[in-house]
């Protein structure tokens, strides 16, 4: 397998033998994964293989329970941290199903998020003018309607608008590690291009991205460094981007039943 060697220092996220259960059922059965700054990883796999569970566990969703293994993020024990601490440390999850929050405006929500993270880092709250400028810039980056940011969080947004909104928040928060959980689903081809362009423009040598996706389609717009295949709670194959093309051609069967 073509896994590059990395020194310990370079590794941002290290997942070791991760097992997790939800409602008594084991979904993750020993995941191993390392992500270094500057990298984009794609995780593919059939329905029910555990892709979204992995994303939820990384973000700290209390519905999932880790039974074995460990995760370090920037050398710290991620599983010890509350979800908000993980976010403040620079981990971001773009939700597969973004949640509607009636009564909380996008403006208040975004400002509260930014200021919570700034406070964590010991920084002063963002100034009104800087915040407004940032909102405008990032909104334009994603071609979002100015009306959207004045509404309640995700309330009445279309599927595509919700996904754009996730990437908008990612742009506002500037995370170190972004996990995009099926961000491509529910997007038409134009929206997909805009979202992918946004992700590409936010990518630097300091941050990293994990793309969780069903289809190869997204990988035409965002080029991963590595592709992993998740099946039945384990990574069964890792490889170069060509692996995604092969999956598109041959499906998953040849990996599962060699």
């Amino acid at each position: 397998m073509a896994i590059r060697t990395k020194s310990y220092k370079q590794i941002m996220l290290k997942i070791k033998n991760l097992h997790a259960i939800v409602e008594g059922k084991e979904i993750l059965k020993g995941i191993n994964l390392e992500v270094a700054p500057g990298e984009i990883h794609a995780i593919m796999g059939p329905n029910g293989s555990g892709k979204s569970t992995l994303a939820s566990v990384l973000a700290g969703n209390p519905k999932y329970e880790v039974t074995r293994g460990n995760i370090t993020f920037k050398g710290k024990d991620l599983l010890e941290m509350a979800p908000e601490e993980r976010a403040c440390e620079g981990l971001f999850l773009s939700f597969q199903y973004p949640v509607e929050i009636p009564g909380v405006s996008m403006v208040n929500f975004t400002r509260a998020s930014i200021n919570a993270q700034r406070k964590y880092r010991g920084e002063a709250p963002i100034s009104a003018s800087e915040f407004l400028r940032m909102m405008r810039d990032k909104r334009e980056l994603l071609g979002m309607d100015s009306q959207l940011v004045t509404r309640s969080v995700n309330e009445g947004f279309s599927g595509g608008e919700k996904k754009k909104n996730e990437i908008f928040q990612m742009a506002m928060l500037n995370p170190l590690l972004s996990i995009l959980d099926e961000t491509d689903s529910g997007l038409d081809i134009d929206a997909l291009r805009v979202v992918a362009e946004g992700v590409n423009r936010l990518h630097t040598q300091e941050n990293a991205t994990i793309l969780i996706t069903h289809y190869q389609r997204l990988l035409e717009y965002i080029k991963p460094h590595q592709v992993h295949v998740l099946y039945n709670g384990k990574i069964v194959k890792s490889g170069s981007p060509e692996l995604a093309l092969e999956l598109e051609r041959r499906g998953y069967d040849w990996l599962v039943n060699p």
Binding site: P83, E84, R86, A87, F92, P102, G103, F109, Y120
Partner: peptide, 27 residues
Amino acid sequence: EARFYMQARGISAEEAQLMLMVAFTRD
């Protein structure tokens, strides 16, 4: 779910709960 969504953006559980309670009264 809404609370977790807010926490995933860095907002503390207590603050998220507060914001959701205020939001509940909004209409």
